[in-house]
Design a protein around this nucleic acid. Sequence first.
DNA 1: ACGTTCCGTTACATTCCTGTAACATTTCTG
DNA 2: CAGAAATGTTACAGGAATGTAACGGAACGT
Lengths: 234, 234
Amino acid sequence: MSQKTILVVEDEAAIRDMLKFTLTSSGFWVEEADNAEQGMRIALEKKPDLILLDWMLPGISGVTMAQKLRQNGATENMPIIMLTARGEEEAQVQGFESGVDDYVVKPFSPRALVARVNALLRRQKGGHSSENGNQIISGRMCLDIESHRFYVDGDEVKLGPTEFKLVNFFMSHPDRVFSRTQLLDQVWGINVVVEERTVDVHIRRLRKLLEPINVADYIQTIRGSGYRFSVVEE
Amino acid sequence: MSQKTILVVEDEAAIRDMLKFTLTSSGFWVEEADNAEQGMRIALEKKPDLILLDWMLPGISGVTMAQKLRQNGATENMPIIMLTARGEEEAQVQGFESGVDDYVVKPFSPRALVARVNALLRRQKGGHSSENGNQIISGRMCLDIESHRFYVDGDEVKLGPTEFKLVNFFMSHPDRVFSRTQLLDQVWGINVVVEERTVDVHIRRLRKLLEPINVADYIQTIRGSGYRFSVVEE
DNA sequence: ACGTTCCGTTACATTCCTGTAACATTTCTG
DNA sequence: CAGAAATGTTACAGGAATGTAACGGAACGT
Protein backbone atom coordinates (compact mmCIF):
# COMPACT_ATOMS: atom_id res chain seq x y z
CA MET A 1 0.00 0.00 0.00
CA SER A 2 1.30 3.43 -0.94
CA GLN A 3 2.24 6.13 1.49
CA LYS A 4 -0.64 8.35 2.55
CA THR A 5 -0.44 12.09 1.98
CA ILE A 6 -1.80 14.48 4.55
CA LEU A 7 -2.32 18.17 3.96
CA VAL A 8 -1.84 20.40 6.98
CA VAL A 9 -3.40 23.86 6.77
CA GLU A 10 -2.27 25.84 9.79
CA ASP A 11 -0.96 29.38 10.12
CA GLU A 12 1.06 28.99 13.32
CA ALA A 13 4.47 27.70 12.30
CA ALA A 14 5.12 26.01 15.66
CA ILE A 15 2.00 23.88 15.50
CA ARG A 16 2.59 23.15 11.84
CA ASP A 17 6.08 21.87 12.56
CA MET A 18 4.84 19.76 15.42
CA LEU A 19 2.17 18.23 13.22
CA LYS A 20 4.63 17.54 10.45
CA PHE A 21 7.00 15.86 12.86
CA THR A 22 4.27 13.74 14.46
CA LEU A 23 2.73 12.65 11.18
CA THR A 24 6.02 12.04 9.43
CA SER A 25 7.16 9.84 12.29
CA SER A 26 4.00 7.84 11.82
CA GLY A 27 4.81 7.18 8.20
CA PHE A 28 2.76 9.82 6.44
CA TRP A 29 3.84 12.21 3.74
CA VAL A 30 2.97 15.77 4.75
CA GLU A 31 2.09 18.74 2.58
CA GLU A 32 1.85 22.13 4.26
CA ALA A 33 -0.02 25.36 3.76
CA ASP A 34 -0.33 28.40 6.00
CA ASN A 35 -3.52 29.82 4.53
CA ALA A 36 -6.71 28.68 2.88
CA GLU A 37 -5.91 29.71 -0.69
CA GLN A 38 -2.67 27.81 -0.72
CA GLY A 39 -4.45 24.93 0.99
CA MET A 40 -7.09 24.73 -1.72
CA ARG A 41 -4.45 24.77 -4.42
CA ILE A 42 -2.49 21.93 -2.85
CA ALA A 43 -5.68 19.98 -2.16
CA LEU A 44 -6.50 20.09 -5.88
CA GLU A 45 -2.98 19.42 -7.11
CA LYS A 46 -1.74 16.79 -4.72
CA LYS A 47 -5.06 15.16 -3.89
CA PRO A 48 -4.13 14.35 -0.30
CA ASP A 49 -5.71 11.41 1.49
CA LEU A 50 -6.69 13.56 4.43
CA ILE A 51 -6.73 17.23 5.40
CA LEU A 52 -5.92 18.70 8.79
CA LEU A 53 -7.53 22.08 8.86
CA ASP A 54 -7.13 24.84 11.40
CA TRP A 55 -10.33 26.52 12.43
CA MET A 56 -8.83 30.00 12.65
CA LEU A 57 -6.93 31.05 9.58
CA PRO A 58 -5.96 34.53 8.37
CA GLY A 59 -8.21 35.60 5.51
CA ILE A 60 -10.51 32.74 4.52
CA SER A 61 -11.39 30.70 7.61
CA GLY A 62 -11.11 26.96 7.95
CA VAL A 63 -14.86 26.49 7.96
CA THR A 64 -15.25 28.34 4.69
CA MET A 65 -12.47 26.30 3.17
CA ALA A 66 -14.12 23.09 4.32
CA GLN A 67 -17.34 24.15 2.63
CA LYS A 68 -15.49 24.96 -0.58
CA LEU A 69 -13.80 21.59 -0.49
CA ARG A 70 -17.15 19.89 -0.15
CA GLN A 71 -18.65 21.82 -3.02
CA ASN A 72 -15.88 20.90 -5.43
CA GLY A 73 -16.40 17.49 -6.98
CA ALA A 74 -12.69 16.72 -6.96
CA THR A 75 -12.27 17.32 -3.26
CA GLU A 76 -15.77 16.47 -2.14
CA ASN A 77 -14.97 13.29 -0.29
CA MET A 78 -11.61 14.15 1.20
CA PRO A 79 -11.64 13.42 4.90
CA ILE A 80 -11.24 16.58 6.94
CA ILE A 81 -10.16 16.89 10.53
CA MET A 82 -10.70 20.32 11.99
CA LEU A 83 -8.34 21.75 14.59
CA THR A 84 -10.04 24.01 17.10
CA ALA A 85 -8.84 25.87 20.17
CA ARG A 86 -10.35 25.02 23.52
CA GLY A 87 -13.56 26.78 24.41
CA GLU A 88 -14.90 26.94 20.89
CA GLU A 89 -17.70 24.55 21.59
CA GLU A 90 -20.01 26.28 19.15
CA ALA A 91 -17.29 26.16 16.57
CA GLN A 92 -17.33 22.40 16.77
CA VAL A 93 -21.01 22.22 16.05
CA GLN A 94 -20.64 24.56 13.11
CA GLY A 95 -17.67 22.52 11.97
CA PHE A 96 -19.76 19.39 11.72
CA GLU A 97 -22.39 21.23 9.75
CA SER A 98 -19.83 22.28 7.20
CA GLY A 99 -19.15 18.64 6.47
CA VAL A 100 -16.09 18.08 8.60
CA ASP A 101 -15.51 14.43 9.47
CA ASP A 102 -13.91 14.94 12.83
CA TYR A 103 -12.34 17.61 14.97
CA VAL A 104 -9.53 17.78 17.46
CA VAL A 105 -9.30 20.28 20.26
CA LYS A 106 -5.96 22.01 20.88
CA PRO A 107 -3.86 21.19 22.75
CA PHE A 108 -3.95 17.54 21.76
CA SER A 109 -1.69 14.57 22.29
CA PRO A 110 0.17 13.46 19.16
CA ARG A 111 -0.82 9.86 19.77
CA ALA A 112 -4.48 10.73 19.96
CA LEU A 113 -4.21 12.71 16.75
CA VAL A 114 -2.55 9.86 14.90
CA ALA A 115 -5.24 7.51 16.17
CA ARG A 116 -7.94 9.79 14.80
CA VAL A 117 -6.15 10.17 11.49
CA ASN A 118 -5.82 6.42 11.13
CA ALA A 119 -9.45 5.86 12.08
CA LEU A 120 -10.61 8.31 9.47
CA LEU A 121 -8.36 6.88 6.76
CA ARG A 122 -9.63 3.45 7.61
CA ARG A 123 -13.19 4.64 7.19
CA GLN A 124 -12.24 6.23 3.90
CA LYS A 125 -11.28 2.97 2.25
CA GLY A 126 -9.64 -0.35 2.89
CA GLY A 127 -6.64 1.27 4.50
CA HIS A 128 -3.48 -0.24 5.85
CA SER A 129 -4.85 -2.43 8.57
CA SER A 130 -8.01 -3.87 7.05
CA GLU A 131 -8.65 -5.35 3.65
CA ASN A 132 -12.38 -5.18 3.96
CA GLY A 133 -13.81 -1.72 3.55
CA ASN A 134 -16.75 -2.25 5.80
CA GLN A 135 -15.06 -3.29 8.94
CA ILE A 136 -13.61 -1.04 11.55
CA ILE A 137 -10.50 -2.30 13.29
CA SER A 138 -9.35 -0.70 16.49
CA GLY A 139 -6.65 -2.28 18.54
CA ARG A 140 -7.74 -5.82 19.37
CA MET A 141 -11.32 -5.18 18.29
CA CYS A 142 -12.93 -5.56 14.92
CA LEU A 143 -16.44 -4.55 13.98
CA ASP A 144 -18.02 -5.85 10.80
CA ILE A 145 -20.97 -3.69 9.85
CA GLU A 146 -22.39 -5.79 7.04
CA SER A 147 -22.47 -9.06 8.90
CA HIS A 148 -23.25 -7.27 12.13
CA ARG A 149 -20.51 -9.03 14.02
CA PHE A 150 -18.04 -7.91 16.65
CA TYR A 151 -14.74 -9.61 17.28
CA VAL A 152 -12.13 -9.28 20.00
CA ASP A 153 -8.83 -11.01 19.32
CA GLY A 154 -10.58 -12.81 16.50
CA ASP A 155 -13.28 -14.31 18.69
CA GLU A 156 -16.83 -13.14 18.22
CA VAL A 157 -18.54 -11.32 21.06
CA LYS A 158 -22.31 -11.13 20.90
CA LEU A 159 -23.72 -7.66 21.23
CA GLY A 160 -27.29 -6.50 21.76
CA PRO A 161 -28.77 -3.87 19.44
CA THR A 162 -27.86 -0.84 21.52
CA GLU A 163 -24.49 -2.27 22.45
CA PHE A 164 -23.74 -2.72 18.78
CA LYS A 165 -24.71 0.83 17.96
CA LEU A 166 -22.64 2.13 20.84
CA VAL A 167 -19.54 0.21 19.83
CA ASN A 168 -20.04 1.25 16.24
CA PHE A 169 -20.21 4.88 17.20
CA PHE A 170 -17.27 4.70 19.56
CA MET A 171 -15.03 2.88 17.11
CA SER A 172 -15.90 5.41 14.42
CA HIS A 173 -14.97 8.27 16.71
CA PRO A 174 -12.02 7.17 18.81
CA ASP A 175 -10.17 9.29 21.31
CA ARG A 176 -12.91 11.79 21.69
CA VAL A 177 -15.01 12.62 24.69
CA PHE A 178 -18.78 12.54 24.31
CA SER A 179 -21.25 13.86 26.82
CA ARG A 180 -24.23 11.71 27.70
CA THR A 181 -26.41 14.07 25.73
CA GLN A 182 -24.24 13.74 22.64
CA LEU A 183 -24.27 9.97 22.95
CA LEU A 184 -28.04 9.92 23.29
CA ASP A 185 -28.36 12.06 20.17
CA GLN A 186 -25.89 10.04 18.14
CA VAL A 187 -26.65 6.51 19.27
CA TRP A 188 -30.25 6.59 20.42
CA GLY A 189 -31.25 9.33 18.00
CA ILE A 190 -32.61 12.80 18.45
CA ASN A 191 -36.30 12.95 19.40
CA VAL A 192 -35.74 9.94 21.64
CA VAL A 193 -36.29 11.07 25.19
CA VAL A 194 -34.70 8.99 27.90
CA GLU A 195 -32.88 9.66 31.13
CA GLU A 196 -29.25 10.64 30.79
CA ARG A 197 -28.26 7.95 33.25
CA THR A 198 -29.45 5.37 30.75
CA VAL A 199 -26.13 5.94 29.02
CA ASP A 200 -24.27 4.90 32.16
CA VAL A 201 -26.19 1.67 32.35
CA HIS A 202 -25.40 0.77 28.77
CA ILE A 203 -21.76 1.67 29.22
CA ARG A 204 -21.81 -0.63 32.20
CA ARG A 205 -23.37 -3.46 30.17
CA LEU A 206 -20.78 -3.02 27.47
CA ARG A 207 -17.94 -3.00 29.95
CA LYS A 208 -19.26 -6.16 31.55
CA LEU A 209 -19.16 -7.89 28.18
CA LEU A 210 -15.62 -6.71 27.57
CA GLU A 211 -14.30 -7.45 31.05
CA PRO A 212 -13.68 -11.17 30.56
CA ILE A 213 -11.37 -10.37 27.69
CA ASN A 214 -9.65 -7.47 29.40
CA VAL A 215 -10.61 -4.77 26.99
CA ALA A 216 -13.09 -2.99 29.23
CA ASP A 217 -10.73 -0.08 29.80
CA TYR A 218 -11.01 0.88 26.15
CA ILE A 219 -14.03 2.77 27.42
CA GLN A 220 -12.92 5.51 29.75
CA THR A 221 -14.91 7.74 32.05
CA ILE A 222 -14.12 11.42 31.90
CA ARG A 223 -15.66 12.66 35.10
CA GLY A 224 -17.80 15.70 34.52
CA SER A 225 -17.66 15.35 30.75
CA GLY A 226 -18.78 11.95 29.61
CA TYR A 227 -17.12 8.91 28.07
CA ARG A 228 -14.33 8.25 25.63
CA PHE A 229 -13.32 5.24 23.57
CA SER A 230 -9.62 4.97 23.13
CA VAL A 231 -7.09 2.43 21.97
CA VAL A 232 -4.38 4.35 23.75
CA GLU A 233 -3.52 3.16 27.25
CA GLU A 234 -4.47 5.34 30.18
CA MET B 1 -5.14 -9.20 -10.73
CA SER B 2 -5.98 -6.89 -13.60
CA GLN B 3 -7.55 -3.51 -13.10
CA LYS B 4 -11.31 -3.65 -12.89
CA THR B 5 -13.45 -1.50 -15.14
CA ILE B 6 -16.53 0.14 -13.76
CA LEU B 7 -19.18 1.83 -15.86
CA VAL B 8 -20.91 4.78 -14.27
CA VAL B 9 -24.23 5.78 -15.77
CA GLU B 10 -25.35 9.01 -14.17
CA ASP B 11 -26.73 12.21 -15.67
CA GLU B 12 -25.67 14.65 -12.99
CA ALA B 13 -22.12 15.70 -13.79
CA ALA B 14 -21.26 16.53 -10.19
CA ILE B 15 -22.15 13.09 -8.91
CA ARG B 16 -20.48 11.48 -11.90
CA ASP B 17 -17.26 13.33 -11.20
CA MET B 18 -17.40 12.42 -7.56
CA LEU B 19 -17.92 8.77 -8.41
CA LYS B 20 -15.09 8.81 -10.90
CA PHE B 21 -12.77 10.38 -8.39
CA THR B 22 -13.75 7.97 -5.62
CA LEU B 23 -13.45 4.88 -7.75
CA THR B 24 -10.27 5.96 -9.49
CA SER B 25 -8.62 6.61 -6.15
CA SER B 26 -9.55 3.10 -5.19
CA GLY B 27 -7.76 1.67 -8.17
CA PHE B 28 -10.58 1.15 -10.65
CA TRP B 29 -10.77 2.18 -14.26
CA VAL B 30 -13.92 4.20 -14.84
CA GLU B 31 -16.04 4.53 -17.97
CA GLU B 32 -18.75 7.17 -17.96
CA ALA B 33 -22.12 7.69 -19.59
CA ASP B 34 -24.75 10.32 -18.92
CA ASN B 35 -27.70 8.48 -20.38
CA ALA B 36 -28.96 4.96 -20.85
CA GLU B 37 -28.32 4.63 -24.61
CA GLN B 38 -24.70 5.60 -24.25
CA GLY B 39 -24.51 3.37 -21.20
CA MET B 40 -25.75 0.35 -23.12
CA ARG B 41 -23.28 1.00 -25.91
CA ILE B 42 -20.33 1.20 -23.53
CA ALA B 43 -21.56 -1.83 -21.62
CA LEU B 44 -21.45 -3.85 -24.84
CA GLU B 45 -18.16 -2.44 -26.10
CA LYS B 46 -16.06 -2.28 -22.98
CA LYS B 47 -17.64 -5.13 -21.07
CA PRO B 48 -17.15 -3.54 -17.64
CA ASP B 49 -16.76 -5.67 -14.53
CA LEU B 50 -19.47 -3.75 -12.77
CA ILE B 51 -22.09 -1.12 -13.54
CA LEU B 52 -23.16 1.76 -11.32
CA LEU B 53 -26.56 2.81 -12.52
CA ASP B 54 -28.60 5.82 -11.54
CA TRP B 55 -32.25 5.14 -10.93
CA MET B 56 -33.48 8.35 -12.53
CA LEU B 57 -32.07 9.03 -15.98
CA PRO B 58 -33.36 11.33 -18.72
CA GLY B 59 -35.07 9.31 -21.44
CA ILE B 60 -34.70 5.63 -20.69
CA SER B 61 -34.67 5.10 -16.94
CA GLY B 62 -32.12 3.12 -15.01
CA VAL B 63 -34.63 0.39 -14.24
CA THR B 64 -35.41 -0.12 -17.90
CA MET B 65 -31.73 -0.20 -18.71
CA ALA B 66 -31.14 -2.82 -16.03
CA GLN B 67 -33.84 -4.98 -17.57
CA LYS B 68 -32.33 -4.60 -21.03
CA LEU B 69 -28.93 -5.54 -19.69
CA ARG B 70 -30.41 -8.66 -18.18
CA GLN B 71 -32.14 -9.62 -21.39
CA ASN B 72 -29.02 -9.33 -23.52
CA GLY B 73 -26.86 -12.44 -23.39
CA ALA B 74 -23.63 -10.43 -23.51
CA THR B 75 -24.48 -8.31 -20.51
CA GLU B 76 -26.72 -10.78 -18.75
CA ASN B 77 -24.67 -11.33 -15.64
CA MET B 78 -22.86 -8.07 -15.19
CA PRO B 79 -23.12 -6.98 -11.59
CA ILE B 80 -25.30 -3.90 -11.23
CA ILE B 81 -25.45 -1.48 -8.35
CA MET B 82 -28.38 0.88 -8.49
CA LEU B 83 -28.15 4.42 -7.15
CA THR B 84 -31.39 5.75 -5.74
CA ALA B 85 -32.24 9.04 -4.10
CA ARG B 86 -34.01 9.06 -0.79
CA GLY B 87 -37.08 10.80 -2.12
CA GLU B 88 -37.40 8.40 -5.02
CA GLU B 89 -36.95 5.51 -2.72
CA GLU B 90 -40.19 6.26 -0.98
CA ALA B 91 -42.01 7.41 -4.07
CA GLN B 92 -41.08 4.35 -6.09
CA VAL B 93 -42.20 2.01 -3.34
CA GLN B 94 -38.93 1.78 -1.45
CA GLY B 95 -36.33 -0.51 -2.89
CA PHE B 96 -35.65 -1.57 -6.43
CA GLU B 97 -36.18 -3.99 -9.22
CA SER B 98 -35.10 -7.58 -8.95
CA GLY B 99 -32.22 -8.24 -11.27
CA VAL B 100 -30.13 -5.59 -9.61
CA ASP B 101 -27.44 -7.01 -7.37
CA ASP B 102 -27.24 -4.24 -4.84
CA TYR B 103 -28.35 -0.69 -4.30
CA VAL B 104 -27.01 2.40 -2.63
CA VAL B 105 -29.15 5.26 -1.40
CA LYS B 106 -28.04 8.81 -2.11
CA PRO B 107 -26.50 10.61 -0.42
CA PHE B 108 -23.95 7.91 0.32
CA SER B 109 -20.49 7.98 1.75
CA PRO B 110 -17.79 7.18 -0.81
CA ARG B 111 -16.33 4.64 1.57
CA ALA B 112 -19.59 2.74 1.75
CA LEU B 113 -19.86 2.71 -2.00
CA VAL B 114 -16.37 1.36 -2.53
CA ALA B 115 -17.09 -1.29 0.07
CA ARG B 116 -20.19 -2.38 -1.83
CA VAL B 117 -18.34 -2.42 -5.12
CA ASN B 118 -15.58 -4.56 -3.68
CA ALA B 119 -18.04 -6.89 -2.01
CA LEU B 120 -19.92 -7.39 -5.25
CA LEU B 121 -16.77 -7.98 -7.29
CA ARG B 122 -15.56 -10.45 -4.69
CA ARG B 123 -18.86 -12.27 -4.80
CA GLN B 124 -18.69 -12.42 -8.56
CA LYS B 125 -15.41 -14.30 -8.46
CA GLY B 126 -16.81 -16.70 -5.89
CA GLY B 127 -15.59 -15.51 -2.53
CA HIS B 128 -17.30 -17.05 0.42
CA SER B 129 -19.69 -19.39 -1.25
CA SER B 130 -18.37 -21.14 -4.30
CA GLU B 131 -20.50 -20.97 -7.40
CA ASN B 132 -19.67 -23.73 -9.81
CA GLY B 133 -21.70 -23.18 -12.91
CA ASN B 134 -25.24 -22.98 -11.75
CA GLN B 135 -24.71 -24.38 -8.31
CA ILE B 136 -24.16 -22.53 -5.08
CA ILE B 137 -22.44 -24.55 -2.40
CA SER B 138 -22.39 -23.28 1.13
CA GLY B 139 -21.36 -25.48 4.00
CA ARG B 140 -23.49 -28.61 3.93
CA MET B 141 -25.99 -27.07 1.54
CA CYS B 142 -26.07 -27.06 -2.20
CA LEU B 143 -28.49 -25.17 -4.37
CA ASP B 144 -28.84 -26.09 -8.02
CA ILE B 145 -30.39 -23.19 -9.87
CA GLU B 146 -30.99 -24.97 -13.16
CA SER B 147 -32.73 -28.02 -11.83
CA HIS B 148 -34.33 -25.93 -9.11
CA ARG B 149 -33.26 -28.37 -6.45
CA PHE B 150 -31.86 -27.99 -2.98
CA TYR B 151 -29.63 -30.50 -1.25
CA VAL B 152 -28.38 -30.84 2.30
CA ASP B 153 -25.63 -33.40 2.85
CA GLY B 154 -26.42 -34.68 -0.62
CA ASP B 155 -30.07 -35.41 0.18
CA GLU B 156 -32.69 -33.36 -1.55
CA VAL B 157 -34.95 -31.13 0.50
CA LYS B 158 -38.16 -30.01 -1.17
CA LEU B 159 -38.66 -26.28 -1.16
CA GLY B 160 -41.68 -24.20 -2.07
CA PRO B 161 -41.32 -21.32 -4.56
CA THR B 162 -40.76 -18.60 -2.00
CA GLU B 163 -38.55 -20.81 0.11
CA PHE B 164 -36.41 -21.47 -2.93
CA LYS B 165 -36.05 -17.79 -3.70
CA LEU B 166 -35.22 -17.07 -0.10
CA VAL B 167 -32.54 -19.74 0.07
CA ASN B 168 -31.19 -18.62 -3.26
CA PHE B 169 -30.89 -15.04 -2.11
CA PHE B 170 -29.38 -15.97 1.22
CA MET B 171 -26.81 -18.30 -0.29
CA SER B 172 -25.87 -15.65 -2.83
CA HIS B 173 -25.34 -13.10 -0.08
CA PRO B 174 -23.85 -14.98 2.84
CA ASP B 175 -22.85 -13.43 6.11
CA ARG B 176 -24.67 -10.20 5.65
CA VAL B 177 -27.61 -8.83 7.57
CA PHE B 178 -30.78 -7.95 5.68
CA SER B 179 -33.73 -6.07 7.05
CA ARG B 180 -37.20 -7.39 6.42
CA THR B 181 -37.75 -4.58 3.95
CA GLN B 182 -34.62 -5.48 2.02
CA LEU B 183 -35.65 -9.11 1.91
CA LEU B 184 -39.10 -8.20 0.66
CA ASP B 185 -37.57 -6.09 -2.09
CA GLN B 186 -35.04 -8.70 -3.10
CA VAL B 187 -37.02 -11.90 -2.74
CA TRP B 188 -40.63 -10.89 -3.18
CA GLY B 189 -39.95 -8.04 -5.62
CA ILE B 190 -40.30 -4.31 -5.62
CA ASN B 191 -43.95 -3.90 -6.49
CA VAL B 192 -45.24 -6.53 -4.12
CA VAL B 193 -46.83 -5.02 -1.06
CA VAL B 194 -47.07 -7.36 1.89
CA GLU B 195 -46.69 -7.12 5.63
CA GLU B 196 -43.17 -7.11 6.96
CA ARG B 197 -43.98 -9.93 9.32
CA THR B 198 -44.57 -12.15 6.33
CA VAL B 199 -40.82 -12.47 6.20
CA ASP B 200 -40.78 -13.90 9.71
CA VAL B 201 -43.32 -16.51 8.77
CA HIS B 202 -41.32 -17.65 5.77
CA ILE B 203 -38.13 -17.71 7.79
CA ARG B 204 -40.01 -19.89 10.22
CA ARG B 205 -41.17 -22.24 7.47
CA LEU B 206 -37.66 -22.48 6.13
CA ARG B 207 -36.23 -23.18 9.55
CA LYS B 208 -38.81 -25.88 10.14
CA LEU B 209 -37.70 -27.60 6.98
CA LEU B 210 -34.07 -27.39 7.99
CA GLU B 211 -34.56 -28.40 11.61
CA PRO B 212 -34.71 -32.16 11.08
CA ILE B 213 -31.27 -32.02 9.49
CA ASN B 214 -29.80 -29.61 12.03
CA VAL B 215 -28.99 -26.79 9.70
CA ALA B 216 -31.68 -24.41 10.92
CA ASP B 217 -29.17 -22.21 12.69
CA TYR B 218 -27.60 -21.26 9.40
CA ILE B 219 -30.32 -18.63 9.46
CA GLN B 220 -29.68 -16.26 12.32
CA THR B 221 -31.88 -13.59 13.80
CA ILE B 222 -30.23 -10.23 14.39
CA ARG B 223 -32.64 -8.63 16.78
CA GLY B 224 -33.53 -5.13 15.70
CA SER B 225 -31.85 -5.51 12.31
CA GLY B 226 -33.16 -8.50 10.43
CA TYR B 227 -31.80 -11.88 9.41
CA ARG B 228 -28.47 -13.24 8.32
CA PHE B 229 -27.45 -16.42 6.53
CA SER B 230 -24.13 -17.72 7.65
CA VAL B 231 -22.18 -20.93 7.57
CA VAL B 232 -20.46 -19.95 10.78
CA GLU B 233 -21.66 -21.67 13.93
CA GLU B 234 -23.80 -19.78 16.39
C1' DA C 1 -65.77 -29.47 -8.93
C1' DC C 2 -62.43 -31.31 -5.72
C1' DG C 3 -58.18 -31.69 -3.31
C1' DT C 4 -53.61 -30.09 -2.82
C1' DT C 5 -50.25 -26.79 -2.08
C1' DC C 6 -48.76 -22.55 -0.96
C1' DC C 7 -49.29 -17.86 0.57
C1' DG C 8 -50.33 -13.71 3.56
C1' DT C 9 -52.53 -12.28 7.60
C1' DT C 10 -53.70 -12.38 12.20
C1' DA C 11 -53.58 -13.55 16.98
C1' DC C 12 -51.23 -15.35 20.65
C1' DA C 13 -46.90 -17.00 23.09
C1' DT C 14 -42.27 -16.23 24.16
C1' DT C 15 -37.94 -14.31 24.39
C1' DC C 16 -35.03 -10.75 25.02
C1' DC C 17 -33.92 -6.01 25.72
C1' DT C 18 -34.53 -1.67 27.68
C1' DG C 19 -35.24 2.29 30.78
C1' DT C 20 -35.72 3.48 35.38
C1' DA C 21 -35.12 3.63 40.04
C1' DA C 22 -32.74 2.52 44.11
C1' DC C 23 -28.63 1.80 46.41
C1' DA C 24 -23.31 1.55 46.58
C1' DT C 25 -19.09 3.58 45.60
C1' DT C 26 -15.91 6.93 44.19
C1' DT C 27 -14.43 11.63 43.61
C1' DC C 28 -14.70 16.40 44.44
C1' DT C 29 -15.22 20.51 47.41
C1' DG C 30 -15.18 23.35 51.23
C1' DC D 1 -13.58 15.04 57.52
C1' DA D 2 -18.40 15.74 56.17
C1' DG D 3 -21.45 16.43 52.67
C1' DA D 4 -22.41 16.75 47.94
C1' DA D 5 -22.00 15.46 43.31
C1' DA D 6 -20.89 12.19 39.87
C1' DT D 7 -20.56 7.63 38.54
C1' DG D 8 -20.79 2.40 39.31
C1' DT D 9 -23.82 -1.38 39.96
C1' DT D 10 -27.83 -4.14 40.39
C1' DA D 11 -32.65 -5.63 40.08
C1' DC D 12 -36.91 -5.46 38.04
C1' DA D 13 -41.16 -4.53 35.44
C1' DG D 14 -42.84 -3.41 31.19
C1' DG D 15 -42.57 -3.56 26.43
C1' DA D 16 -40.83 -4.21 21.89
C1' DA D 17 -39.21 -7.69 18.77
C1' DT D 18 -39.58 -12.22 17.32
C1' DG D 19 -41.34 -17.17 17.36
C1' DT D 20 -45.22 -19.98 16.39
C1' DA D 21 -49.57 -21.85 15.05
C1' DA D 22 -53.85 -21.60 12.80
C1' DC D 23 -57.09 -19.75 9.37
C1' DG D 24 -59.03 -18.43 4.90
C1' DG D 25 -58.20 -17.76 0.30
C1' DA D 26 -55.87 -18.08 -4.24
C1' DA D 27 -53.64 -20.84 -7.77
C1' DC D 28 -53.13 -25.04 -9.91
C1' DG D 29 -53.59 -29.59 -11.61
C1' DT D 30 -56.59 -33.54 -11.89
